[in-house]
């Protein structure tokens, strides 16, 4: 019956495996960031006709293996990886995303690592000061993210067209096509379930009865928004796996792409 004297706030009384989720996410994000950095500067094995890696889309420099818009937009003076022009946009969108903020504040900053678990730091200012006040630009990162959804969709359409021996193109479906399609669906769900999108399309209004379209859009996005975190993780994984598949095909590690060409 002896009492144990200890200030409660400094103690973790949780009995469950509270560290598992932040630890797993920390590993996932670290793997993705390292993988992205490596493939982003690799400048090879990102195209295996007709598949283009999402890391390199849109491919806009003169040294591209495949021009998304038919012609290069950046001239021959650029001799580094084309992905460097693109990667900042999805990176900024995800880095300022409300879901990812929650995830990395927990996993890396430990503020807090889990609910009812003490903060790692003695002082805390949240998002009131630089650099975290910059999270408020999130809605501006959403617009390029929407453009990327359309561009990746265009890549998927191209991925249904396979080159023929006569030099033309034939309709077909390959494993790479399906991976790219799944990837763009997941990225689309992630992008259009965004909290800023939900706000911009209707959430900013107090009165819906004079704005039926805004109300419908807000209602639809609200449904998607409930799974925003799941879409965030699944689309992250799908981007990595799609690139990996195309990369391994291009490198010859995977000997052939299962496909049906009509």
């Amino acid at each position: 019956m002896a009492a144990t004297a200890a200030p409660l706030r400094q103690r973790v009384l949780r009995r469950d495996i509270w560290w598992l989720e932040p630890a797993a996410l920390a590993v996932l994000f670290a793997v993705f960031v390292v993988y992205s950095a490596v493939v982003g500067v690799a400048n090879e094995h990102y195209y295996y006709g007709p598949y283009l890696s999402p890391f390199y889309s849109p491919c806009i420099t003169a040294n591209c293996a495949h021009f998304t818009f038919g012609v290069p937009i950046i001239g021959e003076w650029w001799n580094l990886a084309p992905a460097i022009w693109i990667v900042a946009f999805p990176l900024a969108f995800r880095a300022t995303c409300y879901y990812y903020r929650k995830a990395y504040y927990r996993s890396y900053f430990w503020s807090p690592a889990a609910c009812s678990v003490p903060d790692a730091r003695a002082k805390y200012g949240g998002e009131t000061k630089f650099p975290f006040v910059m999270q408020n630009i999130h809605r501006y990162t959403w617009y390029p993210a929407v453009a990327l959804v359309f561009i990746l969709s265009y890549d998927v359409i191209l991925a249904f067209r396979f080159p023929t021996a006569s030099g033309g193109a034939a309709f077909g479906i390959g494993l790479g096509t399906l991976l790219m399609l799944a990837n763009v669906v997941l990225i689309g769900l992630y992008t259009f379930s965004c909290h800023a999108c939900r706000y911009l399309f209707g959430g900013r209004h107090d009165r819906f009865h004079t704005r039926p379209l805004a109300y419908r859009l807000w209602s639809l996005i609200s449904v998607l928004n409930g799974r925003h975190g799941q879409y965030a993780i699944l689309s992250l994984i799908s981007v990595g796996l799609t690139d990996l598949y195309i990369r391994l095909l291009s490198m010859g590690v995977i000997p052939f792409d299962p496909r049906i060409v009509f």
Partner: peptide, 25 residues
Amino acid sequence: GFCNITKCCTEVCPESIHITDNAII
């Protein structure tokens, strides 16, 4: 601005109010 949306409030709400998604954000 102090809130860093770690969603613990939503996790513990006994009325299942989506505090973070529907109020704070």
